[in-house]
Design a protein around this nucleic acid. Structure first.
Length: 316
DNA sequence: AACGGAACCTGAAAGC
DNA sequence: TGCTTTCAGGTTCCGT
């Protein structure tokens, strides 16, 4: 389920779970998640302690003493979870770290699109997968650079923002959400974006990321975006529902094989030479009454609220 | 070099 | 009821 906000939450959780503990034993299943690597390499984490976790877009780099490292990408369905060591392992667990505090931290991934790469921290940092990434948007966006990146591709805004070299960490949800907030047509050629619009987009991306992060990191019941729960997004997965800003039905189209959601009124079809003087779409305080109603009528198909940091319903 | 599309996986939900 | 199709928040590879 992971885009930047979920990975950020995951890294904070991992930090809390691993910091100050020692890994008693480590094991990985033979699976796609570890591709060419041997299981013995994972076992080599035993005896080590976490020294830090960094996030680069959707990647997490866990550093351990002795220069050992573990690079983690959650793919589509990857997730780090924790249990007491004496509790049974859930399904789809591809790797486990047993700790000296009586807990085990598992990497669970149904669809196997995620990755775990073991190695020296130094080597991992040098991997092309990391080096090719654009800057992380949570640290603030360099508008000049973003404008430059967009200016050199003929692809649509949607596809340009999905490219991890543009900005690292945006995924299918955040791109739809950001373009909606910035009132930009997702089908518009990226190279047509003006400097002013790029500025608007940059702040929309920041707003969208922070909004999702806040939703998922609320102090009380921690809410993760997963199967079956409330849809906290403005347009994502809301085809047919009224736009919270103007009431027009949200539309779904497919770009680069992925769904894009947008409001045809707030994000009018761009035509060459069109001038744009519109301001950013403001997020309704929480969600408009209309949206909340709609959400109750038809709860999102595969978004589920998970509370207390644990899945309320194991994936089977 | 840049682009679009298929491939890689499993499971849930919708469609018939 | 049960079989088939569609869809899913990711990257990577391959042909044009």
């Amino acid at each position: 389920m992971p885009e930047l906000p979920e990975v950020e939450i995951a890294s904070r959780q991992l930090r809390g779970w691993l910091q100050g503990r020692r890994i008693v034993s480590a094991r990985a299943e033979r699976s796609r998640v570890i591709r060419g690597q041997t299981q013995a390499r994972f076992a080599g984490l035993a005896g080590h302690r976490l020294t830090g976790i960094e996030r680069f877009g959707k990647w997490m780099l866990l550093s351990f003493d002795g220069g050992e490292g573990l690079l983690s990408h959650l793919g589509m369905t990857g997730k780090w979870i924790r249990r007491r060591a004496d509790e049974p392992r859930p399904s789809h667990v591809r790797a486990s770290l047993a700790l000296n505090d009586g807990h085990a931290v598992d990497y669970r991934d149904m669809r196997l699109f995620g990755r775990l790469i073991r190695g020296k921290t130094q080597q991992l940092r040098a991997l092309p997968a990391l080096r090719a990434l654009g800057p992380d948007p949570l640290g603030g966006i360099d508008v000049e650079r973003l404008h430059g990146m967009l200016a050199r591709t003929r692809r649509s805004m949607k596809e340009a923002l999905m490219d991890q070299r543009t900005l690292a960490g945006l995924g299918n949800i955040q791109v739809s959400e950001s373009l909606y907030r910035a009132r930009i047509d997702p089908q518009r050629p990226a190279l047509s974006l003006t400097r002013a619009e790029t500025e608007r987009l940059a702040s929309a991306i920041g707003d969208s990321l922070r909004a999702t992060l806040d939703d998922e990191d609320s102090p009380e019941p921690i809410t993760y975006v997963e199967e079956g729960g409330e849809n906290v997004f403005l347009v994502y997965d809301r085809a047919g529902e009224p736009c919270g800003n103007c009431g027009t039905a949200i539309r779904r189209i497919v770009q680069g094989g992925r769904s894009t959601y947008y409001c045809p009124h707030c994000q009018p079809r761009w035509r060459a030479r069109a001038t744009s003087r519109t301001g950013p779409v403001r997020a309704p305080a929480r969600a408009s009454v209309a949206l909340q109603k709609a959400a109750r009528r038809s709860p999102a198909r595969r978004l589920r609220v998970i509370q207390g940091g644990r899945a309320s319903q194991p994936m089977r």
